[in-house]
């Protein structure tokens, strides 16, 4: 059905970009596919940035997979920023220490979202099948905040958090998060094939 507001837009406002399906986590609910896929080269990705800049798409949001798995993420973000685009990303936070936060800042990232599904560390770690994930995610929020990057928090609504949103909001506030996004579980990827019944 035609939308009178968006129909006349010359281009999308945000390009949600899965650079890679690869991830250092193996979350039960992940919508991303598990298959090995051929990835574009840095040069090919820069060509996409050129196209986005030409079409005046103002925002790129890198997702995945884990965007920081791509070693050229900083280069690509810098290139996009130099071409007038605004870059952000969603990450599990594992690879975001103080040094990475500074590199993200200097690459032009305006905002970084960190996934946190529960304010209870053990629940989050179990849900993400990764011991220590909660501690690394909250440390990432603090490092990003210290580097001067706006942070957001993303949580998939599930059995482990649907009765404790207040705790999630308190956690966000304690770490200087500016916005909290609650996402629906997406019936695709690993989330569909292995974990639908346990979400």
């Amino acid at each position: 059905m035609p939308d009178p507001i968006s129909d006349l837009f010359s281009a999308p406002l945000t390009f949600n970009w899965t650079l890679s399906f690869r991830c250092n986590f193996s979350c039960l609910h992940c919508y991303s596919r598990e298959e090995i896929a051929q990835e574009l080269s840095t040069g090919q990705n820069k060509q996409i940035v050129d196209l986005l800049a030409q079409r005046q798409v103002p925002f790129i949001n890198f997702g995945g997979g884990e965007p920081l798995i791509r070693s050229d993420l900083y280069e690509l973000a810098s290139y996009a920023t130099a071409n007038g685009l605004n870059v952000s990303m969603n990450s599990n936070g594992w690879l975001v220490d103080e040094a990475a936060a500074e590199k993200l800042k200097s690459s032009g990232f305006r905002s970084v979202g960190i996934s946190l599904d529960s304010a209870d560390a053990q629940r989050h770690d179990e849900f993400r099948s990764m011991p220590g994930a909660f501690a690394r995610a909250t440390a990432a929020l603090d490092a990003l905040h210290a580097a001067g990057i706006k942070t957001t928090m993303s949580s998939v609504v599930s059995r482990i958090n649907h009765e404790s949103f207040r705790e999630l909001l308190d956690l966000a506030e304690a770490h200087g998060v500016s916005q909290v996004y609650l996402h629906n579980f997406k019936c695709s990827g690993r989330g569909l094939t292995t974990a639908k019944s346990s979400i």
């Binding site: 006349l8 837009f9 010359s10 005046q56 103002p58 925002f59 605004n86």
Partner: peptide, 12 residues
């Protein structure tokens, strides 16, 4: 502030 001229809208 991020902004954009919408040429098609302007033509309409």
């Amino acid at each position: 502030i991020v902004w954009r001229n919408e040429k098609r809208r302007e033509e309409e």
